[in-house]
């Protein structure tokens, strides 16, 4: 198949960017979207032009490195699919494909299609963990977790931290990422002692970097792991609850 790639080129964080159009001839439908960029970059380098910078690594949809806005949609048109797992057979109806970096104030551009997503690390550092220093754990089967609770935690934990939710959001909000990490930990019995301090610190850190959520739901549609916006509801509920909770009293049952 033949197609045109219209790609955002930007030499550095402060440089002026522009679109370049690259005609691609005779590419196979079985090629993945990143392999298309490999081919493009080989051609550019052979011509003596600098290749397009883009983040990628595992190419199995799990590391969360790849991040391309494809025809205005984070990770492209296929539902539940990261850029690296998108194959050209799903794009045969197009003549020109526009590719841009994640566009969000919280993700400054590094070069071309690569952006800085360190803000996501800062949110985890703020409270996205269970305090359990190595060595102190009791036998694993002493903690019973209902299968349904464990499955729900796993649904949230599947987040790959790619940032598509932020990129898809008209407000550049980080709610789905934050809610996924928060819910994973707070649905489990092990996560209860820190639950309400966790929600406050994670939400406050998130607000330092990202815009506000206005319940568009674009994030869920863009998420390559199809993480549900219901987790945002859980985050919001616990954030409100936390305002009324005194952790010093959390040992009291009634």
């Amino acid at each position: 198949m033949d197609l045109n790639l219209k790609v955002w080129r930007q030499a550095g964080p402060d440089a002026v960017g522009r679109f370049e159009i690259y005609p691609m001839h005779d590419v196979s439908e079985d090629m993945s979207f990143l392999e298309l960029f490999d081919v493009l970059n080989e051609q550019l380098e052979t011509r003596g032009e600098e290749p397009v910078a883009f983040d990628h690594d595992c190419r199995e949809g799990i590391c969360g490195s790849c991040a391309m806005m494809i025809d205005g949609r984070a990770h492209g048109p296929e539902r539940g699919t990261a850029t690296c797992q998108l194959h050209l057979r799903k794009l045969t109806d197009r003549e020109t494909i526009t590719v841009e970096p994640w566009r969000a104030a919280g993700f400054p551009i590094i070069k071309d299609l690569a952006v800085d997503r360190s803000a996501l690390d800062r949110i985890v550092e703020a409270g996205g963990y269970i305090t359990a220093p190595t060595g102190a754990a009791r036998d694993a089967n002493e903690i019973l977790v209902a299968k349904q609770a464990s499955d729900a935690a796993m649904d949230a934990a599947a987040c790959i931290g790619c940032g598509a939710c932020v990129a898809a959001c008209p407000n550049g909000a980080g709610q789905l990422f934050t809610a996924a990490k928060y819910s994973h930990l707070s649905l489990l019995p092990q996560g209860q002692p820190e639950r309400f301090t966790r929600v406050v610190s994670m939400v406050e850190e998130m607000e330092r970097w990202f815009g506000s959520c206005t319940n568009h739901g674009e994030c869920e549609a863009a998420c390559p792991k199809e993480i549900s916006v219901n987790f945002i509801a859980m985050l919001n509920r616990d954030y409100v609850k936390a305002q009324f909770k005194n952790p010093a009293l959390s040992g009291q049952r009634h």
Binding site: A132, G135, A137, A140, V145, A153, H184, L188, Q190
Partner: peptide
């Protein structure tokens, strides 16, 4: 044991 304590689902 360690991983379960950390919340690995």
């Amino acid at each position: 044991d360690q991983c379960v304590a950390q919340g690995v689902p």
